[in-house]
Every structure is written in C-alpha cells, then in structure tokens.
Design a protein around this nucleic acid. Structure first.
Lengths: 235, 235
DNA sequence: CCCCGAATACTTGTATGCAAGTATGTGTGA
DNA sequence: TCACACATACTTGCATACAAGTATTCGGGG
C-alpha cells in the first residue's frame, strides 16, 4: 500500500466534505430545524425533502442520520421521521456540556491570551453593541457565536466550540426563538464584557465563573418560549 | 397530524436503533478500529466490508459517515476510505474533552452521591482489583469504563459519558494498544480509589482534581505506544 | 348507525445500478 | 532501457428499485 506523505496531504486537502451534497443537505436541514422553520413535532418525508432540495433520498438519509445523532430528529422505522420536540433534558444536557467545555476553554484562554487577542475580542463586543443599537438581532447572535468561538480557539482547543455547537441543537432553538425577545441582549453584552475583562487580566477562575454565569442566560428564556409555543415542547 | 401522546411513546420505544444493520455495522467497525484490528492508515473498501459483514454498501456507507464525524476514518471522494492515523492533536482534544466533561460531572456527583451509590462505586473498584489479580486486562478496562460511566450517571448528566466516549476514539486506541503494558494498571486503581473517596466525603473540588489527574495517565502511555508503532501515527 | 376487516398508500431500510474520477499497469515509441 | 500515453480496474457519490411494515380509509356486514 502506497502511504506516501504526499497522498496523506492530498487526503486532508480534499476531505473538507461540505461542498458535497451530503454536507450541504445536513447544513440546510440543521438550520431549518434550529430556526424552527421546521416546527418541532413536524413530520419529515425523505422523498419530499429529496424533491425540494433537488437530490435523491441517499444524501437526505445520510444527513438525517447525522441529525439523529444530534437528537434533532427522531427516525422511526417504517413509520416516519419527525423533528424532535424541544426537550428540557436535552436543553439541560446541552447547558451542562457548554458550561463544561467552554468553561474549561476560557480558563485556558485567560492564561494564554496576548494583548492583540484581547483586542480582537474587544472588537467583537463593539460590533455587538453596534448590532444592538441597530436592533439587528441576527447580527448580534452572529457575533455572539464569534466571541464564544474565539475564546475556544484561543485556548488551543477549537474542538470545544465545534463539539459544544454540535451538542447544542436544542439550546440554539431556544436562542433563535428568543430572538424576538431582545430584552436580555443588553445584559448579555455586559456579561460578555465581564468575561473578556477577566481574560484581559489573566484571571482564569474569574473568567470561567463569569462565562458559566453568562451561559445561564439562555436557559432563563426557556419559560418564556414555553409559554409562547407550548406545543413545541415534549410531554 | 396525529401527534397523540401514545404515538410519541411508541416512537421513543422503537428509536433505539442498534438492532438495525446500520447501528450494528457502526459498532463493529468502531470496535475494529479502536482495537487496532483495522490498522491506522489501512484502506477500507466499502464493497469488501459489505461482503464481509453480509450487508450491502448502504448501511456500510452510513456507518462510515458517522465514523468520519468521530475522526476515526477519512473518506476521500473517488479515492478511498482510510483508517485515520493516530493524531496527537486528536488525542489532546479528546483529553481536553474528557477532563472538562467528566471533571464537571464528578464535581456534581460528589454533591449528590448517596451512601448506596458510593457502595456501588466501591464494588466496581473491588472487581477491578480482582481483574488485576487475574491479569485479565480486558475485564479491567471494562470496569474502568463502568466506573467512569457511573460517575457521570450519578451527576444526572449521562450525556457527559456518551459524548466523552464519542470524542475519545483516538484516546481509546491508545488505551487498547497499551493493554499489553499493564505497568500503569496498579497505579490507576489507586487513583480510582482516591476519586471515589473524595466523592464519599462529598468534596467536589478534590474529586475533580483527582479525576483530572487520573485521566492524564492514559496520555502518559502515548510515547510508549509511539515507540512500538511509529507507523500508526500521523506525519 | 356502529364496528370490523381488508385493500391501499404511504413510511423507512436495504440492495443495486450508474456516473465521475483516480491510480495503476501495460504497451508502444524513442 | 526509459518515458509517456492509454486502457483498465478500482474507488466513492448519487440515483433508483425493491422489500418490509404501519396507519388510514373505505367498504361491507351486523
């Protein structure tokens, strides 16, 4: 077997995957579910999805299998595929995972961040304030993700962010649904500032505590969402 | 749409999934990779796997896609599917994830464990000592997993264990390969005892520190494995 | 009018066939 | 003998066909 160095390089180059239909379908379906365009409890037909997206059932199926790993759909043999209802347990699990992974990451980030890294974090917060002033909630959430991702990257463990995101499907549905309730936004920006400030002063413990406190904001919106859309939730 | 309570119950009942060929194939292939029966760098042919396992290419493909998410295989379009070489970055990432998730879990477990829970943990350690005395390394590792899983379950966040396992493919390959080097085993049992003792005394901080310290044992075996099988590693 | 049963129209799971692309081996030419 | 071009035999990605099973609905009997 020819396992030359060159071949391995060409492998890692081409194994991106998102350009293929499978990855594209996965991204589309995941966004449709997280944004509640596909309503919780809704039935999904592989054939209909295949027709709507202009592909065959094969890449649809492979995407649905991945979404099932994310607990975002439930596949019942010979019966149907359903968009998972929002599960309090799944939210709780996701919250636990985020706090554990991102908390551990920001702790490390606080010990490694250089001044220019902190400046980049500050810049993100500025853009968040801009988005808030423009009432551009979508842009706000984009930079929210950017900040959290940057903190994970700074720790040298980008995997913390990707795993956290992968596990946070149910939580992100809450976030997206609460975009119409921007009452928290102002407070969230201030909490971000506290976290970044702790990172600036190289205070790992403080940074982790502040981040974990901040992450709890999202779950605080759950009761409001549940009042608005009781049928989106389990049992 | 008939979303009755009964239907949802029947859904969760049947959505186990492992009985189907897809789940079976995934489990078989994952174990073959983690146990190094399939050597790192080895090329896998969908057709050959399909023939050997007595199924068609479809369930094989779906299993390989999941293994790709686990970073255990690399799929290169029109070229081939390869067992991932052991990656130091992947090991480091897995180590970070395990420490973060299981550390956070054991911290909670220490505050919630009742005497009978601690007794169950003690029983697992006893069985580990038995396995060690019998030089039954496989049984030792089985109860190793049992202990860690129990700690996560006690925290009320079983997801910590399942996610940790899912992310620890590369790390578990090291563990399995180091089964022929049982020099660490004795020490590992003592570390387990320290963790359980901290849980018994309801000392969350102590328990987390002890567990994180214990988890570092696995990576300490990496240099030995790398000396034994340099071709199993990346670059 | 109600109840029960069978046919029907779906669903997902699996198998297979085709398309696009790459590495390799072979044969030919210099 | 070496180099280059082409044919061949693979690979995975995707599309399609078939199998197994379930809910629904329509029709007939009581």
């Amino acid at each position: 077997m020819a396992t030359s160095r060159d071949m391995r390089i060409s492998i890692s180059e081409r194994a991106s995957g998102t350009s293929r239909a499978r990855g594209r379908v996965y991204a589309i379906l995941r966004d449709a579910i997280v944004s509640a365009e596909f309503e919780p409890g809704q039935r999904l037909s592989e054939s209909e999805l295949a027709e709507r997206l202009g592909v065959s059932r094969t890449p649809i199926r492979e995407a649905l299998v991945r979404l099932r790993d994310d607990r975002l759909v439930e596949i019942v043999p010979q019966l149907g595929t359903y968009v998972s209802r929002i599960s309090r347990q799944a939210i709780d699990d996701a919250q636990f995972v985020r706090e554990a992974l991102e908390g551990a990451a920001v702790r490390i980030a606080a010990t490694r961040a250089r001044p220019e890294d902190v400046a980049a974090l500050d810049a993100i917060i500025v853009r968040q304030r801009d988005a808030f002033r423009d009432s551009d909630v979508a842009r706000f959430y984009f930079f929210d993700d950017e900040l959290h991702r940057s903190l994970c990257d700074l720790s040298g463990h980008g995997v913390a962010w990707s795993l956290s995101q992968r596990a946070s499907g149910h939580l992100n549905r809450i976030r997206r649904l609460s975009m119409t309730l921007p009452a928290y936004i102002d407070e969230m920006i201030e909490e971000h500032a506290v976290v970044v400030d702790a990172v600036r002063r190289s205070e790992p413990e403080e940074a982790e505590v502040a981040l974990r406190e901040h992450l709890k904001m999202v779950v605080s919106a759950v009761p409001d969402i549940e009042r608005l859309h009781p049928d989106y939730f389990e049992s």
